[in-house]
């Protein structure tokens, strides 16, 4: 079914989402991919603060192209999620409730999602121009030196995604 959700993504909202739902996300979300995940993971292991409070937040696995003048952001589609699997359970334990990417997740990630009530969405891989139109503001808020891999705070309106794995562990990649 189609549903619209606003962020922050509370656990109550996560529980209503079922694998297979078309979900349109509005609100603030954050980007992070490989290099930013590694740094956040190191921060958690070293008992340091994360650069962003991820409680009830959604992380979009994205490294955009540079924006032209007058554009909010460049092309902005999802990257492959499985590269983040090593770091993801620690972030879910820290309160992250949603992830947007593409492709399969590990058993460990799915277990952490079930235990802590989180949902995994897929955006359409290779539709970065289309998806960029839903991003209304973008600002680098951490790890500026990582360039495209820096953490960005995005404001999105009706970002179209599909719930692939819900918090009960239902997974529409496994049909």
């Amino acid at each position: 079914m189609k549903r619209h959700i606003d962020t922050p993504l509370t656990k109550e909202k996560v529980k209503e989402i079922n694998a297979g739902d078309y979900v349109y996300i509005t609100g603030t979300i954050y980007t992070a991919r490989d290099a930013a995940h590694l740094r956040m993971y190191d921060s958690i292991n070293n008992k340091k603060e994360l650069p962003v409070n991820i409680d009830n937040q959604i992380i979009y696995y994205l490294g955009p192209t540079p924006a032209r003048e007058g554009q909010v952001i460049g092309s902005a589609g999802p990257t492959t999620s499985s590269r983040m699997d090593k770091y993801t359970p620690a972030l879910i334990e820290r309160g992250m409730t949603g992830m947007i990417g593409k492709g399969k997740r590990s058993k460990e990630v799915i277990e952490a999602m079930k235990k802590n009530t989180a949902v995994y969405f897929a955006a359409v891989g290779g539709a970065g121009a289309l998806l960029s139109k839903c991003i209304k503001s973008a600002e680098v808020i951490a790890y500026d030196d990582l360039g495209t891999e820096a953490i960005r705070k995005l404001y999105v309106e009706n970002l179209p995604v599909i719930a692939v794995i819900d918090c009960k562990g239902n997974n529409i990649y496994e049909r």
């Binding site: 554009q71 970065g128 121009a129």
Partner: peptide, 17 residues
């Protein structure tokens, strides 16, 4: 739709260029 937007608005087809 993405191909059309990429061409008309000059946004790369995919962010992984």
């Amino acid at each position: 739709e993405n191909m059309k937007i990429a061409k008309e608005d000059m946004i790369p087809i995919c962010q992984d260029t």
